[in-house]
Amino acid sequence: MSAVVRSRPWLLTLIALAVLVAVNTALQPSFVQPAVLQSNLTTFLPLTLVAIGQTYVVMGGDIDLSVGAIAALVNVVTVSAIAAVGGDGLTPIIAGLAAGLATAVVCGVINGVLVAVLRLQAIVTTFATGIVFAGTALFVLPQAGLPVPEAFWRSYGATLIGLPVVLWILLAGLAFALFLGRRPFVAHLTAVGGSRVGAFQTGLSLSRVRIGAFVLSALFAGFAALCLTGETASGDPLLGQSLALSSISAVVLGGTALSGGSGGPVGSILGALVLGMIGNVIFFAGLPFAWQTLVQGLIVLAALAGGVLVTRR
């Protein structure tokens, strides 16, 4: 049992999620209706995506505090690009998506180079770049606004082959995580996070691996930003401010150690869903909103303590 949990700590997260789903359904019987599920998923999806990306950075022994700011920047770049191209049809949307995701990649490379090549401390560096990215977002779009074309948000809320698009996006994220998990990259990332010295001595290129992780993190923050854009249908330079810390909470809840070298994105997906469900349960149990943050904090604390106890065997 303990060996199973040690190699798959997310099993505990899965159990917690099942319990929360059961409690939520008891409190709110309509929870299982497709429309309600879809709206819940729409709410949880951005954090889930950011958490997937954050996992790679944490596995490599770093941390990315700039994901919220990256999401905001990608959002305003996307809506601005769409507005700049103008016109109808798909062209402006595609231009917007491309500009947004390219921005994300640039942000990730900047973070990665500062941390892995210039060897600045990840927590301080991404805190600072986060401020810079947020400032740039305000520069690009000083005030919330700039509606996106109807086709954008309509397709985000639509269904595809009988399933909502948001579910397809979640499944795509999961599929990507599983795909990458079998590539050598994740083994190298685990090695870099587990022992920097050992990984270097083995001949791995530390900077390439770490920059790769930061780019993935930024890219997933970009995907989250596009989802938020689909949800709000407009630009907002202040969006996603809680994403950084919530994504780290989700990563921890999913069984990835903050010290690096273990864990994986599947757990973080579950962790993000658990965080979202806690909010739901508190809402439907009629507890004051202030409880939500408090309970989430306590649960993350418990997960951190539990992780330490497990590794101490």
Partner: peptide, 23 residues
């Protein structure tokens, strides 16, 4: 080089350590 303080990654399996970087 066999490193005196070992170059192994504690969290990885024996096979993953042996093949690390040339999987």
């Amino acid at each position: 080089l066999f490193y005196q303080e070992l170059s192994l990654i504690p969290q990885l399996s024996v096979a993953a350590n042996i093949g690390l970087g040339r999987e």
